[in-house]
Computed example of a mutant assay.
Amino acid sequence: MLHDLFEEERRHVTLGPGATLLGGFVRDIADDLIHHIHELSARTPFRHMETPGGKRMSVAMLSCGHLGWITDRTGYRYTDFDPLTGKAWPAFPLLFLDLAQRAAQEAGFRNFVPDACLINRYQPGARMSLHQDMDERDLTAPIVSVSLGLPAIFLWGGLHRTVRPKRHQVLHGDVVVWGGASRMIFHGVDVLKNGQHPATGDIRFNLTFRKVN
């Protein structure tokens, strides 16, 4: 009972203007989302990309949708095909598109139509340093970020990298949506701790939906 009350209290947490943590928003469809991730990774594998500075990212990634995000020595960018396979990125599963639009609307953003979804796979020791999502042409649309599997610490900073970030735990089925005045906030994920989750083992998956064009 106390656990249920706690979950209800954290269901909507305001991180800033235009930024909301929706606790447990997709918990009821989490198993289906994970199934789709495995199907997608069989078609376009997860890979550890390289930053323009030559650093190997600790998080493994793949994309689906009309566009996919990549990074290598030539820079950060979106492409309409997977350079690893030479084929178009897999289309969104319908469930992906539905959840992204429902979450955006719940957070106050209507008519969100993403054209890219970056899927991140974290294992213990992986992290995502503070950054801004700034490779999209359309900066009026929100980012919708879905957490599955192991819990993580989501870092929520400011409009400058020097702002000390606040720490928010994100659990299996949580969704964070940010846009408007918070669209260019620096954010990241702290080092993932060891653990086991019934749905994913020692892995955390993160789906981030974006409208690029």
Rank of each mutant, 00 (worst) to 15 (best):
44 T>L: 05
100 A>W: 05
80 D>S: 14
102 R>D: 13
34 I>M: 08
177 V>H: 11
47 R>M: 10
62 L>T: 15
95 L>C: 10
161 R>V: 10
205 F>R: 01
99 L>N: 03
157 G>M: 09
120 N>G: 12
10 R>Q: 15
72 D>W: 07
87 K>C: 12
82 D>N: 11
107 A>D: 04
201 G>D: 05
88 A>P: 10
180 G>T: 03
47 R>P: 01
210 R>W: 03
168 H>V: 15
91 A>K: 09
118 L>P: 02
179 G>Q: 03
174 D>E: 04
170 V>Y: 00
48 H>V: 14
67 L>H: 00
193 K>P: 00
40 L>F: 11
114 P>G: 13
161 R>Q: 13
105 Q>I: 08
59 V>G: 02
77 R>M: 12
82 D>Q: 02
76 Y>R: 07
191 V>A: 04
117 C>E: 02
181 A>L: 13
150 L>C: 03
66 H>E: 13
132 Q>P: 10
136 E>H: 12
60 A>W: 03
26 V>H: 00
29 I>V: 15
137 R>L: 15
27 R>V: 04
54 G>A: 05
77 R>H: 11
40 L>R: 07
135 D>F: 00
200 T>Y: 03
105 Q>L: 15
93 P>D: 06
189 V>S: 01
162 T>A: 15
147 S>Q: 03
130 L>I: 07
68 G>C: 11
51 T>G: 06
118 L>S: 02
59 V>H: 00
23 G>W: 13
89 W>S: 04
177 V>F: 13
140 T>K: 13
21 L>W: 14
15 L>S: 05
90 P>L: 06
121 R>H: 08
208 T>M: 13
142 P>R: 07
182 S>P: 12
3 H>C: 14
54 G>M: 06
186 F>N: 07
26 V>S: 00
69 W>F: 15
169 Q>G: 14
105 Q>C: 12
25 F>M: 03
56 R>E: 15
178 W>H: 14
164 R>I: 07
197 H>C: 08
144 V>P: 13
114 P>F: 12
176 V>W: 01
16 G>M: 05
125 G>T: 05
77 R>N: 09
93 P>H: 03
85 T>S: 12
105 Q>W: 13
164 R>Y: 01
66 H>Q: 09
69 W>E: 10
197 H>A: 05
72 D>E: 04
101 Q>T: 12
34 I>S: 07
118 L>C: 03
33 L>F: 09
141 A>Y: 07
178 W>D: 01
132 Q>F: 06
35 H>V: 12
